[in-house]
């Protein structure tokens, strides 16, 4: 019983850690972007300052909006934070694995997206509609790419239980067989999906000021104050979850297989942080070096991701 309690405590600690450090990750990515563009950039803590400032600001809501608009940030934050519970972060398992798997995580992301898309429509402005309609297209195509990636991962590592697949991944690395061709193709697909889901270039430009080109920002254009803070925070949590998942699924090096000792746990934590930082820097660097794609070329990129994970499936079977 006490062991279960310890596990639950560790699980909750993992979740709180990812929720708390998600804005920092965002800050680091912005800093990397700024430095590669030869700018000084704001402090890596800036996202926290933004959140604190926004929490204390008055809010303006549209007179056209309904309760959906007011509820959406709450639903988004709750759904994303709940999703964080299922993701193994420092340890190869999450104690909540029996209650949900990677598909539940996707479902929760879907719930958040559903509400934010509705909020975009709720304010009766053309920009919200623009954002929602673009998100409709992108998310509809991300779904098969992501599901097929999961297909490959669960074929290769067994099942959709995040804890067991991450553990399997860690185990496989130890036995020296990380380079499974099917996983490599899944990695490509997952990377594309990760960029799409976290609204980064080439899908969306998180730094743009042009209303007409936005996707995600257009949907949340009407938000201010506390609600905006919650939305921004959920976005950074979602991004952190995706990065953590990427790292733990595809580059499990250094991950402890259990919580046997302080030193292995420490190695696990340190290596995880190092890997996530490197990955986020890579994403930021790619973002600096690529232009946003034409809206109607994005389906090609997603189709590429689908095809890539399909090849992964074939490699597994053939």
């Amino acid at each position: 019983m006490s062991e279960t309690l310890t596990l639950v405590a560790i699980g909750i600690f993992q979740t709180i850690a990812i929720i708390a450090f998600a804005p920092l990750l965002m800050g680091i990515m912005r800093k990397v972007k700024a430095r590669t563009q030869k700018r000084l950039g704001a402090s890596v803590l800036q996202p926290y300052y933004d959140l604190l400032k926004l929490l204390k600001k008055d809010e303006v809501v549209s007179d056209q909006s309904s309760w959906i608009f007011r509820a959406a940030p709450w639903v988004m934050l709750v759904a994303t934070a709940t999703a964080a519970l299922f993701v193994p972060i420092f340890l190869p398992f999450s104690p909540f694995g029996t209650a949900g798997d990677i598909l539940v995580m996707l479902g929760l992301f879907g719930l958040a997206r559903f509400f934010i898309m509705l909020a975009g429509l709720d304010v009766a402005s053309a920009f919200g509609g623009l954002g929602t309609s673009r998100e409709m297209m992108i998310s509809a195509l991300v779904e098969p790419a992501l599901f097929l990636t999961i297909f490959v991962v669960s074929l290769t590592l067994g099942g959709t239980n995040l804890s067991s697949i991450v553990a399997a991944s860690a185990g496989q690395f130890v036995s020296g067989v990380l380079i499974v061709p099917s996983m490599l193709f899944a990695l490509i697909a997952f990377f594309v999906v990760m960029l799409a889901e976290s609204g980064r270039i080439p899908f969306d430009n998180p730094a743009t000021h042009l209303e007409l080109t936005m996707v995600h920002e257009a949907m949340v254009l009407e938000y201010s104050g506390k609600s905006l803070a919650m939305i921004q925070w959920s976005q950074s949590i979602k991004q952190a979850i995706l990065l953590a998942l990427f790292v733990n699924l595809f580059i499990p090096a250094g991950m402890a297989s259990s919580i046997v000792g302080i030193d292995t746990a420490a190695t696990s934590v340190v290596s995880f942080i190092a890997k996530v930082l490197l990955l986020s820097m890579l994403v930021a660097f790619i973002e600096t070096r690529t232009a946003k794609w034409r809206l109607f070329r994005l389906p090609d990129l997603l189709a590429m991701a689908i095809a890539s994970s399909m090849i992964g499936v074939l490699f597994f079977y053939l």
Binding site: F114, G120, A124, T132, P144, L146, F147, M310
Partner: peptide, 30 residues
């Protein structure tokens, strides 16, 4: 069957978009 699962996932993705549209257009905004 893995091809069928692409179709299935695409269906799920578009279904979400569809009901965002149906609910959003009918009940929200002006």
């Amino acid at each position: 069957i893995s091809f069928a699962s692409i179709a299935f996932a695409l269906t799920a993705g578009i279904a979400l978009a569809t009901f965002v549209k149906i609910f959003g257009i009918s009940f929200l905004s002006r």
